[in-house]
């Protein structure tokens, strides 16, 4: 079960649903310590790419390797090292914050469940609401809890789909701080986001996606917003 990797390589990955093409010929590689941003308009294929990286969706062509292992071959062992914060938050609204975290910690077969859950609640700043149903939480609180849910097993690869949605400025700043900490711990983070201003300082690298392709991946010195506009116009 124990498998680890420090880099993820995507080569020539394509995915289509019938005639609708979600991704085509996407290739890139990244390694631990990087925070890669996936930027692009709605329908650019960001979520599909994250689902493929999370091994939830199989690519129609091409492959993803996790430090040399293919998801199809390594299966559960790769899944044990991946955390995904999806667009839907993957939380049971009827359960409390604590129960949600504890359920997933146990599902992953982790030791010291209580300690982990407590730590997660502290990071999410939800200790005093820990035993309330998620049903009553605001979007921001859910978002913070969902992030800790995705991190409960200490994944190597963290995939984030619009992590800043519904966060106010201080929560967003806290999230940036949390992600920086993970980055320093050797986590490989790939985040799809619209929030250019917040992402600006955090991302070490940016991939611009448009209509399922990577249109630009250079690391120019210009500001993120300018580069985004250039990339979208160029294609």
């Amino acid at each position: 079960m124990s498998l680890d990797f420090t880099e993820v390589a995507v080569s020539n990955v394509a995915r289509h649903y019938g005639r609708r093409k979600a991704l085509s010929q996407v290739s890139f590689a990244c390694s631990a310590g990087e925070v890669v941003g996936l930027l692009g308009p709605n329908g650019a294929g960001k979520s599909t790419l994250l689902s493929i990286l999370a091994t939830l969706v199989e690519p129609s062509a091409g492959e993803v390797t996790y430090g040399g292992y293919r998801a199809a071959a390594a299966g559960a062992a790769v899944r044990a090292r991946v955390g995904l914060l999806g667009h839907d938050l993957y939380l049971y609204p009827e359960l409390s914050a604590r129960e949600n975290l504890a359920f997933f910690a146990r599902l992953y077969g982790l030791p010291d469940v209580d300690a982990r859950v407590q730590r997660g609640l502290e990071y999410a700043n939800l200790v005093d609401r820990a035993d309330d149903q998620v049903l009553g939480f605001s979007r921001g609180m859910r978002q913070r809890l969902a992030l800790e849910r995705a991190l409960v097993h200490g994944p190597r690869l963290l995939l984030l789909d619009e992590p800043f949605t519904g966060l106010d400025q201080s929560s967003a700043a806290a999230l940036v701080g949390r992600l920086r900490g993970l980055q320093d711990d050797g986590c490989l983070i790939i985040a799809a986001t619209h929030d250019l201003d917040v992402a600006e300082g955090l991302l070490t690298r940016v991939l611009f996606l448009r209509q399922g392709r990577i249109v630009s991946a250079e690391e120019g010195g210009l500001g993120l917003r300018t580069r985004y506009q250039l990339a979208m116009r160029a294609s």
Binding site: M1, A54, T55, L56, A76, A77, R79, A80, V82, L84, G86, D88, L89, Y90, L91, Y92, P93, F104, L107, Y108, G109, R149
Partner: peptide, 13 residues
């Protein structure tokens, strides 16, 4: 509803 089935599928179980 919150796509928890995918979260279950994502677990290494």
């Amino acid at each position: 509803q919150t796509d928890t089935l995918r979260a279950l599928m994502l677990a290494p179980a």
